[in-house]
Amino acid sequence: MADIVLTTYPAERSRNVGDALITHSMIELVRARVPAFEPVVMFRETPLDELPRETRHRVFAPGFSVANGTYPALFPLFTDLDRMERFWPVGCSFQANLPERASFETPYGKDTLAFLKRMAERFGPFPCRDQLIVDRLERSGVPAFYLGDLALFDEKRIGTALRVPPPVGTLVITLQHHVRYLEQIVDLAKRVRARYPEWRRLVSMHAVPNPMNRVLAARMAELGYELLEVHGEVAKLDLYETVDLHVGYRLHGHLHFLRNRKPSILMVEDARSYGFSRTQGTAFGCVDAWSQESREPDDTAPERALALLDEQMASGFSGYAPLLAFIDRTHAERVSPWFDAVAEVLNG
């Protein structure tokens, strides 16, 4: 028997550290229960047909995409799906550019729907990272349930208190994915500088710089921001250890701070963040960067984000207590039992 982990981390392309964090989190959750767990990690686009036929394979897919065409376009898996002894998609994701409910309502094609139903019938309901993904699957007749994004759960931190920032500390802004927010993020950076002039201010890249990132990095430097490049393996996120507060666009920047019990404000720029912001329990700290009315970036978003931050500073960041309690409860009621069940199979 061989264990395979299909990572969404594109080591040869963007080196998006958020994908590395998803895979790292899943492996750590398994190893906490099965210390000898040493899977073969492969990129999700790798066809598995060349693996030895005489070996049965158990396949883990952290952050498995339940978008149209997921199999075989995004995850080739095996041509003969029966070669999988077990298939564990977990923290299932969905991607779309626009942060709106309509993004989650596009119907599945018949081939994708047949694949999803077949996998659910054989291996059980899909554990999803936000409630809108659960709703999308269930409307299509595919069993699913909410588990949360794996990046939220560091079992060494579960149950611990919020690490409240000092009166003057260090703040990081994470850069967005989409060029449409170019003017908005510069406005946000200017407002942060004016609002908190004594704070140390950083700007962070979660992926290998593209032309937009380079333009923004130069503009941020002009505004007095120091640059952090955290793209790459998950160890790069250690650069955040001395950072007290996050305000920005990267969903997994937001989740990394929450998992480490630090406050964060997420600018909701696409469907990934939208689903998180519309899940009961994880909505706090999310600010819509996109206007549903004008269908353009919302000019009021930076000021709304900083008004929320001001309010939380005044209250000792009290608004994060229910959010952390929800993460702890989700871990106790959903995450830990799911991984306990996986461990029983691996130890069997």
Rank of each mutant, 00 (worst) to 15 (best):
3 D>Y: 15
6 L>D: 09
10 P>M: 03
10 P>Y: 00
14 S>P: 05
15 R>W: 01
19 D>C: 00
20 A>V: 05
20 A>Y: 02
21 L>D: 05
22 I>Y: 09
24 H>C: 08
25 S>R: 08
28 E>W: 06
37 F>G: 06
41 V>N: 10
41 V>E: 14
49 D>P: 09
51 L>D: 12
53 R>M: 10
57 H>L: 03
60 F>K: 06
61 A>W: 13
61 A>D: 09
67 A>D: 15
70 T>G: 01
74 L>D: 05
75 F>R: 05
78 F>A: 06
78 F>R: 13
80 D>T: 10
81 L>G: 01
82 D>I: 01
85 E>Y: 04
86 R>W: 03
89 P>E: 12
90 V>S: 09
94 F>P: 08
94 F>D: 10
96 A>G: 04
97 N>V: 11
100 E>A: 02
107 P>F: 07
115 F>K: 10
115 F>D: 02
117 K>E: 14
123 F>S: 01
126 F>R: 07
126 F>V: 08
127 P>K: 11
127 P>M: 08
128 C>T: 13
129 R>D: 05
134 V>A: 10
136 R>G: 02
136 R>E: 00
137 L>R: 02
137 L>D: 05
138 E>M: 14
144 A>V: 12
145 F>L: 12
148 G>Y: 07
152 L>F: 15
154 D>W: 12
155 E>H: 09
159 G>T: 05
160 T>S: 10
160 T>F: 02
161 A>S: 09
162 L>P: 01
164 V>T: 13
165 P>D: 01
165 P>H: 07
166 P>T: 12
166 P>M: 06
172 V>Y: 01
173 I>P: 03
177 H>C: 07
179 V>N: 10
181 Y>R: 00
182 L>M: 08
185 I>T: 10
187 D>G: 09
191 R>P: 04
194 A>M: 09
198 E>T: 11
199 W>M: 04
202 L>S: 03
203 V>Y: 09
208 V>R: 13
217 A>V: 14
221 A>M: 07
221 A>E: 15
223 L>P: 00
225 Y>P: 00
225 Y>R: 03
227 L>W: 11
228 L>Q: 15
232 G>K: 03
232 G>T: 04
237 L>Y: 04
237 L>K: 11
241 E>A: 15
242 T>L: 06
242 T>R: 12
243 V>L: 07
243 V>H: 02
246 H>E: 02
251 L>E: 03
256 H>N: 13
257 F>I: 04
258 L>N: 02
260 N>R: 12
260 N>P: 11
261 R>K: 06
264 S>T: 06
269 E>S: 05
269 E>V: 03
272 R>D: 05
272 R>G: 07
276 F>W: 14
281 G>V: 06
288 D>F: 10
292 Q>R: 13
297 P>E: 05
299 D>I: 11
301 A>W: 01
301 A>R: 06
302 P>V: 06
303 E>F: 09
320 Y>A: 07
328 D>E: 07
328 D>M: 01
328 D>P: 01
330 T>A: 04
334 R>Q: 10
334 R>V: 06
337 P>G: 01
343 A>W: 07
346 L>I: 08
